[in-house]
Simulated scan of single mutants.
Amino acid sequence: MEGSLEVVILPVRDVDESKRFYAERLGFTVDLDLGEGDGRFVQLTAPGSGCSVQLKPGLETGGRPALLFVVADVDAARAELAEAGVAVSPVQHFEGADRVDGRGGRWNSFVFFDDPDGYPWTLQERPAE
């Protein structure tokens, strides 16, 4: 499966404190700061890096890091993984916070699976430009 690891999702105790740490102490650029409460996430990228971190509330509820892998064709990537014996979700998209079966709009088509240790992976389709 060809693609690139572009986002590591980190559950954090305090989004603002973590944002300050990554931005002010490590020099990461704040790419996005969206949502509120449990739906909030902040995305930051280190200068020169092709992979970003997203900070999401959740550490206090046992959250685990998640990995986002971007592919050109989510249907083909799903088929390749399924053929290799990986238990993958159907292609899904988000409507608000809900995952719904089927393709969505730009940047809104995903496949989900876990590795053998339970780490969640998300495949996201990059729109053809």
Rank of each mutant, 00 (worst) to 15 (best):
G50N: 10
G27C: 08
Q92F: 06
P90T: 13
E60H: 07
T29G: 07
S89Y: 05
Q124V: 15
L123Y: 08
E95G: 06
Y119D: 09
G50H: 11
R103N: 10
L44G: 07
L68R: 09
C51K: 07
V74N: 01
L59A: 15
A72Y: 00
C51G: 02
T45W: 06
V70S: 10
D115Y: 01
G39M: 09
D101F: 03
E80G: 06
V71S: 00
L55H: 04
F113M: 07
G50M: 04
A77M: 09
D38Q: 12
S89N: 06
L26Q: 08
P116S: 10
A77I: 05
V42Q: 06
K56H: 12
L81P: 02
L123S: 05
Q43L: 13
V100A: 11
V71C: 01
W107A: 06
L67N: 02
A66H: 04
H93Y: 01
L59W: 14
E36H: 11
G48C: 09
L26H: 03
A72Q: 08
V100I: 15
Y119C: 04
V100N: 09
H93E: 07
A46R: 15
D115M: 02
E36M: 07
V71T: 02
Q43A: 14
L34P: 10
D73A: 03
G37I: 10
G62Y: 08
A72I: 01
W121M: 07
F28Y: 14
L44F: 03
D98Q: 15
R103L: 01
V71L: 00
G37L: 11
A72W: 00
F69M: 03
P47L: 05
W121I: 00
A82K: 13
D117G: 15
F110Q: 07
G62M: 04
F41D: 07
E36K: 12
R64T: 11
K56P: 00
S52P: 04
G37H: 07
G105E: 14
G39A: 14
F28E: 08
A84Y: 05
N108G: 06
D38T: 14
T45K: 09
T122Q: 13
V86A: 05
A79H: 01
G58H: 09
E125K: 00
G102F: 10
G62A: 03
P65H: 04
C51Q: 11
A76V: 08
F113L: 10
D114W: 02
F69R: 01
V111W: 01
R25L: 12
A76K: 08
A66M: 15
P65F: 04
R78K: 15
G63F: 11
D115G: 05
D73R: 02
R103W: 03
A72V: 02
S89M: 04
R64S: 09
H93N: 14
C51F: 06
S52V: 04
F110A: 03
